[in-house]
Simulated scan of single mutants.
Amino acid sequence: MKKYALLIMTMLLVGLLAGCGGQQEAKKDLQPLTIGLMPDTDSLPFIIAQEKGYFKEEGLEVNIQQYKSAMDRDSALQSGNLDGAISDMLAVAFAKDGGFNVKVTSFTDGSYKLIASKQSGAKSVADLKGQDVAVSRNTIIEYVTDQILAKENLPEDSINKVIIPQIPTRLEMLQNGKLAAATLPEPMASIAVHNGCTFVTGSDELGINPGVIMFTAKTTNDRRAEIAAMYRAYNKAVDYLNNTPRDEYIDLIVEKGGFPPTAKEALKLPEYHHATLPKESDVVDCVKWLKSKELIKKNYTYADFVVDVLNK
């Protein structure tokens, strides 16, 4: 009987070791992913996952490419230089409408804020009537700006939209008083407020969240294991950011995120969430806005945009 028990234990141990070896072998088989980031708080879980070695723990190599404008990021994605990117519903719709198939795999936790310059004296949306407000054309920034105006029952032409695609340039011009206001992502919005500008309102106050992580359809079809490994590391980074004292990571993310030095004091992080699919209303509202401006031809549905790689 003892011999039989010893044999069973030996077989279980061999099976366990073989299983571990199989998992290690599977990790070795993962192909690298190249991800495009923007200078915003949406990108920070990726930076933490990279710097803390969470991707490596999952047996995955992630090449991070950073961009200052959505146009440059989208061009890199469509030219095949990226597998996926921190992005937004609008960019997804434009890509699909142009015949380039991409898929949303989760939402992000960034926010977008309308900030008035110190020189303008504006404290409300109404105060900005007829004044120069910087946005990036046909992007999440303009979408949020238009949603803010709609909430205040103001037409789009009640402000003078100044098109400034690059986020750092938009921030600099706002702080120098060359604009009455600008719509900015975090942390640039908090930096502007820290330097004397005035917060007016933003996407959090509107209850909208059009920020997403997207991949090419080819990547979501052929690289499910890599994406799953990426999100396991992403979720570890979310836990780290939510549960670690700010002083332990602030220098790292300011340096690696490409933020101005003032971000060290000004940066306010959201409470990050584990990877989750976006709300249907966020997709529907973005498509409705794009259709109203005749920027896309098709009335896309939630299923056209979103693929669930998180529960497979």
Rank of each mutant, 00 (worst) to 15 (best):
D127V: 05
Q131W: 00
D72Y: 07
A192L: 03
V287I: 11
G53P: 12
H273V: 04
K113R: 13
D157I: 05
E58K: 14
P168G: 04
K27S: 11
Q24T: 10
A233D: 08
A189M: 02
L179V: 00
N242D: 13
A217W: 05
S75I: 12
P168D: 01
F94A: 01
K268W: 02
D74E: 15
F100N: 05
A275K: 05
G99W: 02
K178F: 05
R232F: 08
Q166S: 14
Y4T: 12
S106F: 01
K151E: 12
L60A: 08
G19V: 09
F55K: 10
A85C: 10
E265C: 08
D157F: 06
W289F: 07
M38K: 11
E255T: 13
D72I: 07
Q131N: 04
A49Y: 09
G22L: 15
L184K: 01
T108V: 03
N209C: 05
D239Y: 10
K291R: 13
V306P: 02
S117V: 02
E57D: 15
M38V: 07
E186L: 04
P278W: 05
A237G: 11
N209W: 03
D74M: 15
L82Y: 08
A182M: 00
K103V: 04
L171F: 01
L77M: 15
L171T: 07
V254E: 09
